[in-house]
Amino acid sequence: MDLVAILRDGFLAMIGPVTAAYAIAAISLNLQFGYTGLLNFGQVAFLAAGAYGTSITVEAGGSLWLGIAIGIMLAVLLGAMLGLPTLRLRADYLAITTIAVAEVIRLVVRSSWAEPVTNGVFGIQGFANAFFDLNPFPPGETYGIGSWLVTGRRLWVMIVSWVVVLLLLLLVRRLINSPWGRVVKAVREDEDATRALGKNVFNYKLQSLMIGGAIGAIAGILLAIEQQNVTPDAYLPNITFILYVIVILGGAGTIVGPLVGALVFQFLFFTFDAFMASSQAEIGWLNTLISPAEAGQIKLILVGAGLMALMVFRPQGILGDPDEVTLDGR
């Protein structure tokens, strides 16, 4: 078994554009959940809104850049739609509504009724050519050292994605370190107390949900651009819960937690893949015991179990302050 190759695959996946997109989606969820205390169980819907907004616009003859703008607006709108009926109520109503809306959006987009616009289960492909036209790296070339290589196409997406991650981290830091961020954290700690101090709690929650929605849309757009493909079944509820693992692993309510969480999670996730693939190639009986498809499913069991274990044993994650968590039974 080639350990170096396994670690290499894990590492290359970790620094790839998908990790960057997950980090962005986690930054968004961290703003909503980690800082504002909003239980958004339908984060994947914001990704879908961004991706569909973009690809449908391009299909309709608009430019990719207009599409990106519309994708983000669509997600902001979705945030408003989710927030207006629920944010005046207890936290669980938002959770119920978001998990339901996310799944229903997927089903509707997938339906033959919506097919004229969304192309149903087949999805929309090849809408991001304008992005790849700007690629300064010859797409066929490879870059790197030894066998640690990425193609020019991938390098281009990677660079753009990580720059976006950096910009969004700076944005969130600016917001959170401002008085606005202080109020939002106060809302997370105790809504009624914050209300009693003259803050319009509903507005702050709605703003956080909508800004988070916009950031989530950016993640969805980057994923869609990277794959040049938007299909409904890329937006399964699984993604939301992977994002929860990432946020809590890195440290909910810390600025760089989502980034750290995404890097660690993706490294583990893909190293596990590479490890399973390589062991299955070498050890024949392992295949009969666990098929590759089952290995993928087992990985998802671990994600769920990991989420529970983190919440119970290390709710502060990697970066969180352990003292902070024990302050209040949250």
């Binding site: 202080r182 954290k185 106060a186 997370r188 700690e189 105790d190 009624d192 107390a193 914050t194 009693a196 309510g253 902070e324 302050l327 209040d328 949250r330």
Partner: peptide, 9 residues
């Protein structure tokens, strides 16, 4: 009545 401190602030 029950004190509402914003614990993690």
């Amino acid at each position: 009545q029950l004190t509402r401190s914003l614990a993690r602030l």
